[in-house]
Each structure stands twice: as structure tokens, then as C-alpha cells.
């Protein structure tokens, strides 16, 4: 039997959840034996090259590119997991949800300090993804199968969830694994 295939992505996140994946320490050697990585920033594979068993999403959706990546994950992955507070509830990026997008962009690009003060513009190139009206949790955009909370989720909950899903057994989560901070 071939190894289960894993893909990961960081949307509107800080890459802290990916750092926490690496925080499984020497268990990462066992992980490489257990699974094969496909599209992921960890191996720098940019596009899906085969059907994936487990997709792991860090971060919520704050722009059109995030939505596109998330939808491609849903399409290509059998099981999708939201990893961390941002993917689950928007997280810190969602603190802008009460502020109109126009005000956010003006604050960031027009009213802030700049090394070229005479040259301030709000970036608006067609190559750039469009910023959404607010930051959305992943499960409000596509169907998500599992949620692993934490900011970041501990290496232990990631390890437990990964091995349980790969081995097809129920998750055994202890009290200290479930944390929202």
C-alpha cells in the first residue's frame, strides 16, 4: 500500500501553525516514514500532482487567492483539517472585521509613515488578489472535516491528529491538548 499523501497551505496566517508542525521534533523522522508530502510550503511543491488524502489549512480567508487555494484543497483532498485559531475563527486577521476595507487600506498605505511620502498609493494591480470585505473562517467557505484549535496548536495535538487520521483510529485528545491560545 502506498503512503497516505499530505498537503498543507498557509492562508491568512502567520506560519506559526506550520512552525508547530515542525515542533513535533524527532517525530518528524517517523512522519516521513508514515506519509508523503505533496503541495506544501514544507517541500515547496506548488501545485497538486496527485490526489491527496489529508489537507491541512492554516489561516482564514482574507483575499480572493486564499479562497481559490482553499477551494483547490477541498477539490484535491479527501479529508480537510482547519489548523489553528485563524482557520477556525479568523483569528487575529479577523480583528479588522469591524473596520471597512477602505479604512484599512487607507490606514496601511496612505496614512502611515512611508519612505516615499509623495508617492503613496493603494496597490491595485490586476495581478494582486482582491481583499475580501472581511476575514472568513475556512469552514464558512468550504466544508471542513476536522478542527484543531490553538494559537498555535501544540505539536502534541498535531501529532495525535495526524497519526490518528493516517491510521484510521479515533482521536484521543487530552485536556491539555485543546487550547485556544
Amino acid at each position: 500500500m502506498s503512503k497516505p499523501v499530505i498537503a498543507t497551505a498557509s492562508l491568512a496566517g502567520c506560519f506559526g501553525c506550520h512552525m508547530s508542525i515542525l515542533d513535533i521534533d524527532e517525530r518528524i523522522l517517523k512522519l516521513i516514514e508514515l506519509v508523503e508530502f505533496n503541495k506544501s510550503p514544507i517541500d515547496d511543491i506548488k501545485t497538486f500532482t496527485k490526489p491527496v488524502d489529508l489537507g491541512i489549512i492554516e489561516g482564514g480567508c482574507c483575499n480572493s487567492e486564499n479562497v481559490e487555494v482553499l477551494r483547490s484543497f477541498r477539490k484535491n483532498c479527501r479529508i480537510l483539517v482547519s489548523l489553528g485559531e485563524c482557520a477556525i475563527m479568523g483569528g487575529l486577521p479577523a480583528m479588522r472585521n469591524g473596520i471597512p476595507v477602505k479604512e484599512c487600506l487607507e490606514e496601511a498605505y496612505l496614512n502611515s509613515l512611508s519612505v516615499a511620502p509623495e508617492d503613496k498609493i493603494i496597490p491595485n494591480d490586476e495581478e494582486l488578489p482582491i481583499v475580501l470585505d472581511k476575514v472568513y473562517p475556512c469552514h464558512e467557505v468550504v466544508k471542513v472535516d476536522y478542527f484543531l484549535p490553538g494559537c498555535p496548536p501544540s505539536a502534541d495535538i498535531i501529532w495525535e491528529a495526524l497519526t490518528a487520521i493516517v491510521e484510521g483510529r479515533p482521536l484521543n485528545l487530552t485536556y491539555d491538548m485543546i487550547k485556544f491560545d
Binding site: 485559531e85 483569528g91 487575529l92 479577523a94 469552514h139 471542513v144 478542527f147 487550547k179 485556544f180 491560545d181
Partner: peptide, 24 residues
């Protein structure tokens, strides 16, 4: 926003969510 909250870890709402294993 639990990650930014000063009360995180001492919050009863959060603690109940932990007890009830609310993942999302």
C-alpha cells in the same frame, strides 16, 4: 479572540469550551 485576550487561561467561557471539547 482568545489568542489576544488577557483573560485567556482564566476565562470561564473558554474553560467551559475546553471541558465540552468545542473545536469549532
Amino acid at each position: 479572540m482568545c489568542p489576544t485576550c488577557e483573560k485567556s487561561g482564566n476565562c470561564e467561557l473558554q474553560a467551559l469550551a475546553y471541558r465540552y471539547q468545542i473545536m469549532a
